[in-house]
Amino acid sequence: MTLIVHRIGPACTVQDQGRTGYLDQGLSRSGAADVMALYEGAALLGNAPDCAALEMAGIGGEFEATVPTAIALTGAPMQASIDGSPVLWNASHQMEVGQRLVIGSVQQGSYGYLHLGGGVETEMTLGSRAAHLTARIGRAVRAGDRLPAPGAGTTGLKLRADDRFSGGLLRVVASFQTALFDEGTLARFTRTTFYRGARANRMGMQLDSEGDGFAAKGQLDILSEVITPGDIQMTGTGAPFILLPECQTTGGYPRIATVLPCDLPRAAQTPAGGEVRFEFVSMEQAVTLQAAFDAELARIPGRVEPLVRDPHDIPDLLSYQLISGMISATE
């Protein structure tokens, strides 16, 4: 056992990269809403990227170490402190027995992640630790729970995370139902600025916009058909929903396009009220963009750097102009 949960936000779950192979049985993948944050946490602790972490939707909690534990904090930046001393986000830190980690609300984005050395080792269900609340696999973490983990990992490391926490442009590809929307509707769709609506969870995220909805032709008699995460589904009112890791596996509402997997972390991290726009790319461009993203994930471990540069670790210290530019000692 490593961390005891004393307080926790209402929508915190253990997530890894989710489970594949159960689509034919109606079970979607689930897994972290921001997969990049999993890779970042793993790199900071020296974990494998398939380790599970605690995903915190909007609000963190208070955690106490029962054994020495390495932790890392990634994803949407939140206020964090250990025994009252602020600690840096996108970094790994060592917690000693009895120390308390307090994580507040998000400052940007939607989903923050708490990683533990060796990964959170809750029980596996169908090959994954990812909670899938709509499928009633696992449950939200509650006060009094314990987060088991081996505990050991590298600490005192930081990463510069790219900004994916304020919405922005999402690249989409046409999908099998895009042709159900006429050209005028599609053009208006790419010209429109959307705002993340109030209805958002791990199943999907509603987008609001000014003006008319985006209706398909013959919307109501479409055969229920396969759904993939990233699909932008038009509900009866023509308001779009971006479908996320806990989406249903089939559905009857038409989908106008699909957000590329590499842009899904940015989509899921869009804060309430944040702006989102869409741009169609060709399948060829999409494959290239996704390959670049996969390569970027693989490069993350090479980008970690020490949190504090200890003078002993700087071999050519004497060559630094440490007082250059100083005019007055009291300035």
Binding site: V173, A174, S175, F176, L223, E225, V226, T228, G230, D231, T258, L260, P261, M283, A286, V287, Q290
Partner: peptide, 17 residues
């Protein structure tokens, strides 16, 4: 034969069940 997102293909045998 139609694409589903970036990484899917859908083989549809009829418009109705």
């Amino acid at each position: 034969l139609r694409t589903v997102g970036l990484d899917g293909l859908l083989v549809t045998f009829a418009q109705t069940m």
